[in-house]
Design a binder for these strands. Sequence first.
DNA 1: TCCGACACAAAAAT
DNA 2: AATTTTTGTGTCGG
Length: 495
Amino acid sequence: MGPQSPIIRVKRREVFPYQESPYFYPTQQLCNLFSPDQSMNYNVKIAAKIDRGFFLASNDWTCYRRNYFQLSASFGIQGLDSSVHSEVPCLLERNGDLLAVRSFLVCIGAQIQNGEKVIELVQHTPKRDKGPQITPRPTHIRAGGDLNANSPGSYVITFERVQFKTATANNGKRRAAQQYYQVHVDLFAELESGDLILVAKSYSAPLVVRGRSPGHYADNDEDHQDGVQGVDSRHHYRNDSVSSMSGAPLGSPVSPGEYPYYSGYAYGSSYPYQSLTSASHMAHSQDTGYYSGNRKDSESYPGSPLSPAALPHVISHASESASPDMYSPAGFVGPESPALSMGRVSHSTGHYGSSNNSHNHYSSSYNSQQHNYDMYRDQDHETQMAGLRIHSPSSPKPSSVASSPSITPRRQSFSSTLISKSTERSVGGLMTRKSRSISLSGTTTTTTVSKRPISNSRPSRTVPATPPNEMHSRGGHGVFSKDRIPESPMEDQHL
DNA sequence: TCCGACACAAAAAT
DNA sequence: AATTTTTGTGTCGG
């Protein structure tokens, strides 16, 4: 019953001045884009940010599979005035041919860190279970978006209410091989033919996705550090996500100078609709982590998980701007390859343009980048195999987290097992939820399945600005014809 | 074991 | 400040 009696709730903590969200690696451009007159070779840069859902735990960017995360992305063409490039016509080089680009689209997806396996993502409507579930789909976007500024003319696509369909394996196990996922943001060029060509992509930091096992919650020592933030560490927070927003007045985004942009997230999933292929097998082992302790020391990252800059290197910048050759590591498939070109998106089974590609997926490239990353990671004494990584208990932890903008890891209490719900409430009445901030810039397109007319008055939720052509262009192909899900009567009413 | 679905309630949004 | 909506998560049942 009356659960709430003397509950003291912590007020929402203020927004942190720093962004607390997984970093992104630099954009990898997979094919050449030229100005119409071919006088310029354009470099595209994807900017992405996870607006909510993740917190840092043991130096790993973590989220709960059951909870939502949100990702916003934009892209720009280097060297072009943002005011101009939104509509810049350009040519894409494919197989030696220069093809006109009709528009650009972005999509997100996820995969196991090592890459072979795609991890499905799913999006819900605000009605959650009552509404339909879909997979993030390529969404039209114009260049010039700025995630950190709400300046008009900024085009940002936000994927809301996204969840991983499966959790990473061995979460919380200190010594077990921890599997990581990576989200990636993909930028596609839509040709006159309707084909979508993957032009660039950006991967997120390695991510840990906790499943429902009541075992993981207590391990956040790191979390405690939030003392900095002043949040009450003793309270149990739901794991609400932290969101980092940049629109904040603070202005200074995460890291001040070094990493001006966040490279994109990843794109990924491929299924048009949820196919319940869920691979439950991968997460089965998670277990019980009875332990909660301090795993701080066993972190897996050498550098601060807060910013890529801290990474050993930004490795591959080469891939970022360089010529195509550079980014093609050995099995890399260039844009010319079928793999990258998804014909029109067909939602058959999985990938968008699966039609021609064998197993498409841009997976190819991640190798270039990830590979390097992995290298550094290995230094940390980790062993990785097939996406699994073993952390050795001995890595000292740099205070990176602490010093940095830290996070607030809100842990959620899964302890329910031990405590009855009501009890918990009373006991932990303190739980607070964090702000759900989201916010993005000016023109934001929400790809969420949502239908919810988010009010635009506030910076909070994403604005439903929908690019007019968004769906049709590709819709023609049939695949993702509608942005939203067909049904969900409820939502409509809502409107 | 793990997952979908339902349910309850706290936090956010309005 | 009150009400409504969104969403974290406890739980049941498969």
